[in-house]
Every structure is written in C-alpha cells, then in structure tokens.
C-alpha cells in the first residue's frame, strides 16, 4: 500500500505532465485547425454555386477555395432590418474577426430574433450577374441542420443549395447531405410567387411536379424534410429586408433611366 502523500504526489505529477503535453499540442496546431475549419465552411458555401465554378468545390485544392473566396466573393453582414453592418458592429456582436465569415450561425440561432445578424455572400459570376448565397440554420429530426442557398439576382430563383446536419439518421435524414440529388432538386425553384409575394420552397411528399415552390422529400425522412422546409421559409425571409432595399434602389435607377 502506498501512503496518501505518495498518491497525491503521483496524481499531481501525472496530471501536470498530461496537461502540459496536451496544451503544447493544442496551441501548436490551433492555427492550422482554425484554417481547416474556415476552408471546410467555405467549401460548403461554394458548393451551393457549383454550376458557376470550373471544378466541383469537393475536389478543389484548399488554395483554390481560398482564392475564389478572396477574389470573387464579397461578404456582407446584415442585421434583422437589412442594414449592412460595419466590422466594428460585427465585433460588437461577439465575433473577433469582424468579417461576415466569422459569424457563427449556431450562436445566432440562440439569440433573440431581433438581435440576430446574418452573413450574405455575393458571388460575381461571369455571365449571370451577382449570385446571393444566404446561410440558414434550423432543426431536423434529432439535431440541428443547416445549409447555404444560392439565389439569382432576382432574389427568388434558386441556383444551388447545400445542406449539412449534426445527427440525422444515415441513409434517411442524412441524405439531405449525402445524396446530391436532394440539393440539386432545389435548382430552378423560386421563393417568390409570380405576384412578388414571399412563399418559400416547401418539401412535400410526392407532388412537386410543375410547382416552382415544392420539391420532393426523401422517403423515410419526413421530419427532416419538414425541418428543411421550415428552415428555408424562415431563414431566407430574414434576408428579405435587405433584398427589398436593393430591389427598390434598382427600381429607382430604372425609373431614372426611363425618365431620360
């Protein structure tokens, strides 16, 4: 039997050694890990505009992902009223980096609706004008789901989408991420009705044919489908104030041109 002194000493030395080793490892790799995370998120954002890119973001080199993001993507942070936030305001909301890409949708989802801020990524495409990529987050069956939706410059037509999830059932709910056909089904659907009213895109059981506001759900994943639809209708609506201001300013320009 060992004395109590020995036991306490042994455990103290062991935990100190372990703590030192782990913290050295953690801090020396932290920079690269943060970068990995940023690249992972950027890849996800870019995969909603795969059609405009030369290469699928999945197979892209990391440097290529960063290059496209730096050169062709403008990031804007918005509040609930559709106002563009300054870097200082983003830092005030709790994101040290002060850029839209630093915004953590997970944290925003927990805030009061009135206080939330959102990132908007504007990709300047070669032949289709600006493409607006919005970030949405909601609840699936077991845990959170999130995604990015790319809209044409009419702020209504979807040109691409991508989804991810935390804990949906593999093969069922997880198909929103794993099955490329699901996000692809959103292409060409529109969030606005012909009269310019906001209606969203619904996920339905069989019967999406012909409707611009419905897509087919995944069999066996009804609840996840409902979650996706709810996330989209609510999430894209947050961006409407900003879209409306752009629309009205564009309208004014057009009006001025007509007057001449």
């Amino acid at each position: 039997m060992h004395s109590t002194k020995y036991i306490v000493g042994f455990v103290a030395i062991l935990t100190t050694v372990v703590a030192v080793v782990l913290s050295i490892l953690f801090s020396s790799w932290e920079g690269q890990s943060k970068l990995n995370e940023a690249i992972f998120n950027k890849r996800a954002i870019l995969s909603s505009i795969t059609d405009y890119l030369d290469e699928n973001p999945k197979d892209m080199l990391e440097t290529e992902v960063l290059r496209i993001f730096n050169e062709d993507v403008e990031q804007i942070a918005l509040n609930m009223d559709g106002e563009i936030l300054t870097p200082e305001q983003i830092i005030e909301s709790g994101y040290k980096g002060g850029r839209a890409e630093d915004i953590d949708m997970k944290k925003e989802k927990k805030k009061d609706e009135a206080e939330r801020i959102f990132p908007l990524y504007v990709y300047s495409s070669k032949n289709d004008g600006n493409v607006y990529i919005v970030s949405v987050r909601g609840n699936g069956l077991w845990d959170e789901i999130w995604g990015n939706i790319a809209l044409k410059s009419d702020f209504s037509t979807v040109v691409g989408a991508n989804f991810d999830h935390k804990g949906e059932t593999p093969g069922l709910g997880a198909e929103i991420k794993d099955n490329p056909a699901f996000p692809a089904a959103f292409k060409g659907k529109s969030f606005m009705s012909a009269d310019g009213e906001y209606v969203g895109v619904d996920v339905v059981k069989n019967g999406s044919k012909g409707s611009p506001h419905k897509i087919d759900g995944i069999s066996g994943a009804t609840v996840t489908g409902v979650g996706v639809a709810e996330m989209l209708i609510r999430g894209v609506k947050y961006y409407q104030p900003y879209f409306n201001t752009i629309k009205s300013s564009q309208g004014k320009k057009l009006g001025m041109l007509n007057n001449k």
Partner: peptide
C-alpha cells in the same frame, strides 16, 4: 508506480489523454 487505490483513475487519465491526441 501506480498506487492501487487510484489505478482506475490513472488509467482513465492515460486513455483520455491519448483520445484527445
């Protein structure tokens, strides 16, 4: 060197360290 009274805790510390690595 491991004291018998706390051997499980010591084992757990070792395992947890490696898993964190």
């Amino acid at each position: 060197a491991i004291p018998k009274q706390v051997r499980m805790i010591v084992q757990l510390v070792i395992i947890a360290t490696l898993v964190t690595v």
